[in-house]
């Protein structure tokens, strides 16, 4: 524990700017993955343990598209689109068969998909790790804001993640399909009784969830290593985000992800040996005082 260093950091503008942006970037990428996870749970009550695999496959597809086209934007879009399609296939072929089944059955199916996809990645891309490399447009020196170091690439990531989060909120809040999704989350039987095609709706939810994870994988690919099994560690953190934010709450996921990012960012200075532990302590505190999470609906 180094409280002096932490105090020194929060009273220094350079450290404050650097660590805050660092926390934001960690948080925003986490939010992108966790948003899909919490959306799927909110509507379908499915805990998608294969969601980290969506992130991994999105990153690999984006990598291949980038190598093929040389365009980072096309790479990210390919990652998002590819995982939207994969999400639909995953839901139609596998998950739709276990709606309402024992959670253990859902868990087993998700875990099987994780293992199968890890092996498929090894067959298609090989066991080596890959790095996409920084797109030429972002191979520039970092900006210095109030003495703090802020890379332009990370500013772009934060803006894009916020834009995607905003678009998702607008989709759910203002559009007809968004209202149907929210209604389905509240009372799926009534939605079905009103003649709405819930089969299509559920596939759409998985498509959006998969797309968000795929976009996150693609966006992060220039700075993260691509390796089979890379989805696992982000899955654990995404679960912490959804638990803290409230299972099913997109807004809660955003706030929880940013809080988690800041805990990591400042925790590594004040509690260098206990940064990971801090995240779990935050989760435990939330669970003790508000078991449904910050913005989750109380379980009756």
């Amino acid at each position: 524990m180094d409280l002096d260093a932490l105090l020194g950091c929060v009273t220094s503008s350079s450290c404050l700017v650097t660590q805050t942006t660092s926390g934001l970037i960690v948080g925003m990428l986490l939010f992108m993955v966790a948003a899909g996870l919490t959306l799927i749970f909110g509507v379908l009550k499915i805990v998608n343990f294969a969601h980290g695999t969506f992130y991994m496959l999105g990153a690999y597809i984006a990598y291949s598209a980038f190598m093929f086209t040389g365009s980072y934007v096309l790479g990210v879009l390919a990652g998002g689109l590819g995982m939207a399609i994969f999400g639909v296939i995953f839901e139609r072929v596998l998950i739709s068969r276990v709606y309402g089944a024992n959670v253990l059955m859902q868990l087993l199916i998700c875990y099987a998909v994780v293992l199968i996809c890890d092996d498929l990645v090894k067959i298609v891309w090989g066991p080596d790790f890959y790095a996409m490399g920084m797109p030429p447009a972002f191979q520039v020196p970092p900006l210095f804001i109030a003495g703090g170091v802020v890379p332009p690439f990370y500013i772009m990531l934060i803006v894009v993640a916020l834009a995607i989060g905003g678009a998702l909120s607008l989709l759910l809040g203002l559009t007809r399909i968004g209202k149907i999704i929210r209604a389905a989350a509240h009372n799926p039987n009534m939605v079905s009784a009103l003649g709405i095609n819930t089969t299509l709706l559920y596939s759409l939810v998985f498509a959006v969830g998969g797309m968000l994870a795929g976009l996150a994988g693609g966006l992060a690919a220039p700075v993260r290593s691509l390796t089979p099994g890379m989805g696992f560690s982000i899955l654990i953190e995404s679960f912490i985000v959804t638990v803290i934010g409230g299972m099913g709450s997109i807004g809660g996921a955003l706030i929880a992800a940013v809080v988690l990012g800041l805990i990591r960012s400042f925790g590594t200075i004040g509690f260098p040996l206990f940064t990971e532990g801090l995240m779990y302590i935050a989760m435990i505190i939330i669970l003790v005082f508000k078991p449904s999470g910050l913005f989750g609906k109380e379980i009756v």
Binding site: Q19, V149, S225, S233, T268, P272, T275
Partner: peptide, 20 residues
């Protein structure tokens, strides 16, 4: 001294700590 976890996907907070 920074001790990131094995397989940690993001080293941003570690890097910024080192810079500080």
């Amino acid at each position: 001294q920074a001790w990131p976890k094995l397989g940690q996907p993001d080293f941003t907070e570690v890097i910024t700590k080192l810079i500080q």
